[in-house]
Simulated scan of single mutants.
Amino acid sequence: MNIRLQLFEFEDQRWFPHVIRQGMLDFLRFMITRLNAYEAATPLLQELLERTGQRHITDLCSGAGGGIAAIQQELSQRTESPVTITLSDLYPNIGAYEYLQHTSGGSIRFVPTPVDATAAPESVKGVRTIFSSFHHFPPHLAKAILQDAADKCAAIGIFEGAKKSWLELLLLWLFFPVIILVVTPFVRPFRLSRLFFTYIIPLIPLGILWDGTVSLLRMYTPEQLERMASEIRAPNYTWRSGRTGTGPGKDVIYLLGYPEEVESIKVEKPESP
């Protein structure tokens, strides 16, 4: 699937009810975590940490923080030292972030105020990541995110949990309606509103199916990411894109970017929670 269509997703709309957006993002976090969908991205993220001497990640456009707990644990094991993560978003999902902070023992923290990925504040430290969200941005804003990272000499990893194929689109429509109905009672933190808008008025399932379809159609291919990165004004910056993974639910499209002169980067030590 080499086409890219800039269609709209409900969760991007300012008027879209927060309770429905939250229910959709909580389901996405649950599925990404259960499938360990970003397992193949962990070695790539470890590479960025080691190249820059960092042990802290600031995740941009975090949504509900899907899969981030497993990534934090595996990275800490791989690097044999604690790796901490700060979640951030233009529309912070505070309930999900508080849940992740509590269950991680403080290894995962969050910024409670809105953070614009195209112009990250100076408080954003460490390696930057974006999981499952880069496709939301049209090319000019996507390039602004990459340019902001390059301007501030920050390493960045873009990861999309898909191969971008017609098979994935077919599986979405055939199996996800049933999966949503089966797993919703097990999604945490528990919310009565999630049950109501899944089983009584099924706005959450409909939103998931529409936004999931549009996400695949909006997703950038590795070739498109590479062309985009080539337009970033950053003479001493290295970019690499590609696909990795082992099959449906485990495939990842990625773009890595980091300053070449890594020895000149100051290692940022996150503040104690």
Rank of each mutant, 00 (worst) to 15 (best):
17 P>Q: 02
135 H>S: 10
139 P>T: 11
214 V>Y: 08
156 I>A: 04
204 I>F: 09
157 G>P: 10
239 W>Y: 13
268 E>K: 02
138 P>R: 03
63 G>E: 02
212 G>W: 09
126 G>N: 07
182 V>H: 04
30 F>H: 15
273 P>F: 04
229 A>D: 03
62 S>A: 15
39 E>M: 01
43 P>W: 11
139 P>V: 11
253 I>C: 05
258 Y>T: 06
68 I>Q: 09
205 P>Y: 06
270 P>K: 13
176 F>W: 12
129 T>V: 06
200 I>R: 10
260 E>H: 12
82 P>L: 13
79 T>K: 08
216 L>M: 13
220 Y>P: 01
195 L>Q: 04
223 E>Y: 05
256 L>R: 03
19 V>D: 00
196 F>K: 02
28 L>F: 09
97 Y>C: 04
77 Q>C: 06
240 R>N: 12
226 E>W: 04
81 S>C: 13
206 L>K: 06
271 E>H: 12
13 Q>T: 05
162 A>W: 04
90 L>Q: 09
135 H>W: 07
41 A>V: 05
175 F>T: 09
235 P>Y: 10
109 R>V: 12
9 E>Q: 14
100 L>P: 01
250 K>H: 15
104 S>E: 10
236 N>Q: 14
113 T>L: 11
93 N>L: 03
22 Q>F: 00
178 V>P: 00
242 G>H: 06
140 H>I: 07
212 G>A: 12
9 E>L: 09
16 F>S: 00
146 L>H: 05
250 K>A: 13
94 I>E: 12
106 G>N: 07
182 V>A: 12
269 K>I: 15
151 D>I: 04
146 L>R: 05
24 M>Q: 09
206 L>C: 07
174 L>P: 00
163 K>G: 02
228 M>E: 06
256 L>N: 03
146 L>I: 12
259 P>D: 11
212 G>I: 11
100 L>W: 09
264 S>C: 02
196 F>S: 01
22 Q>K: 07
176 F>T: 13
61 C>R: 02
97 Y>T: 04
224 Q>M: 15
162 A>Q: 08
212 G>M: 09
9 E>G: 09
214 V>R: 05
169 L>N: 10
161 G>D: 08
160 E>Q: 10
29 R>S: 15
85 I>A: 03
49 L>Y: 09
236 N>F: 14
60 L>I: 07
121 P>I: 05
106 G>K: 07
139 P>H: 01
216 L>F: 11
197 F>H: 10
204 I>H: 06
48 L>C: 13
67 G>C: 05
40 A>R: 03
140 H>P: 05
150 A>D: 03
